[in-house]
Design a protein around this nucleic acid. Structure first.
Lengths: 114, 114
DNA sequence: TTATATACATAAGAAAATTATGCATTCAAT
DNA sequence: ATTGAATGCATAATTTTCTTATGTATATAA
């Protein structure tokens, strides 16, 4: 995994969003999904991902269940009730920020087309 | 100035973009312009702005001229040649990241409408 | 057997922000 | 008269979040 910084805090929102759609996912799966959705352009590093997952769990937004698959450990994450409530707030917040970014960077930008 | 996190490397790009359009601006003016463009939703803190300006100057992307206005000092920033070359790269990079964000956050999103 | 993929985790360090503080002037309000 | 808000710059301490590097372990293809 490597590169791509750019928007602070967006990783949390990305994780929550994917778990809103997918019921449950494990860490490695999240990195692959993001890579797939962005044609390889965003690569989540483990050093960023795992601490972020642990933090979200510590905040009570995620829960985990560990499973054994082919002798390998998988730690599945899913949204808690609190997580389900938070995810939409986070998305709205990030979308709002992106809209404001467009207003600055793209003078001809028109909302509603995001 | 206060609140609004979310800006990580985007602040540099915002600064460069405003200076691409405005020939020259001073720090306080930049904070006001961003506030105006975003209806008060993005407020650049001084603790973020001034170090960012100093860094861009140290990297040779900006130059400064100090002027006295009503007994107050103003430090005007403008793009150097290098700055003019860099600004478009930075914008493309940030727009690309935003597009990828949309692919993750907004499944029905369609590029070309950014 | 060696590299790649899968799968987790943490530690050291850098980068970029927040928060707090400081200095100084102008102008409007009390 | 003085107090607060706005203008205008700056830096220091701290926090957050990232990169980079490292470690452990299994499975599979070359």
């Amino acid at each position: 995994m490597s590169n791509n910084n750019l928007i602070k805090g967006s990783l949390q929102t990305i994780i929550l969003k994917l778990l809103e759609e997918n019921e449950r996912m494990y860490g490695y799966e999240i990195t692959q999904k993001v890579k797939e959705l962005t044609a390889g352009e965003i690569k989540i590093t483990e050093g960023a991902l795992y601490p972020a997952l642990h933090k979200l769990e510590a905040e009570g937004l995620l829960t985990t269940e560990i499973e054994q698959v082919d002798n390998r450990v998988r730690k599945y994450y899913s949204l808690t009730k609190d997580g389900q409530k938070e995810v939409d707030n986070k998305i709205v917040e990030l979308q709002g920020f992106v809209e404001n970014l467009q207003r600055i960077l793209n003078p001809t930008w028109n909302p509603g087309l995001t």
